Amino acid sequence: MPDSFLKGRMRSVGIALRGLVSLFRSEPNMQVHALAALLVTGLGFLAELSPVEWILQNLAIGLVIGLEAINTSIEELANKVESRQDPQIKRVKDYGAAAVVFAAVIALITGGLLYIPRALSLIS
């Protein structure tokens, strides 16, 4: 592989990481998602999740955080394109927000399927 290819990939990763840090610093919803991800990751270690359960949990976390990043991007771009209230742009923003809520509900269901049976077994 040419050296320039590797430098280009490293530069791309750096840009992506900078964007991720910016998202976590500036977006309250992303901070909530990050806190939830940290909590359920810690819970996963306590619950001794199986490899498949870890995969499911990580996919749910990634889905929510990834969609939140896309939704934030949509909102930023929409605000740049049109700063005034616009019904079409509002719909686009609402659709992005709906995608995040849908992913969060799926993540909650996944978490419930992983952790409720364990919690019930501790009670009985």
Rank of each mutant, 00 (worst) to 15 (best):
I15C: 01
I74Q: 08
R11T: 08
R118V: 12
M1P: 07
E68I: 04
R84P: 01
L113S: 04
P117M: 04
L56E: 09
L56A: 08
L56Q: 09
N71R: 13
I109N: 09
V100P: 04
M30S: 15
Q57Y: 00
G42Q: 02
K7P: 10
P28F: 00
G19W: 09
E53R: 00
F45E: 12
V40Q: 12
P87V: 01
E48G: 01
L120C: 09
N58G: 11
L23P: 01
L46P: 01
S121V: 10
E48M: 11
E82I: 12
A60T: 06
A36Q: 13
P2W: 02
E68F: 08
A78P: 02
A34D: 14
E68H: 13
L20M: 08
N71F: 00
V52H: 12
A97Q: 14
G19V: 03
L120Y: 13
L122S: 11
L77R: 15
Q57S: 06
H33S: 12
S124M: 05
G111Q: 11
E82V: 13
K90E: 15
L77E: 09
F45P: 00
R9K: 11
L122N: 11
E76G: 08
A99M: 06
T41A: 08
G19D: 03
L49C: 07
V13L: 05
G112M: 13
W54P: 09
R91Q: 14
S12W: 03
D86L: 05
F102Y: 10
V92P: 03
A37D: 07
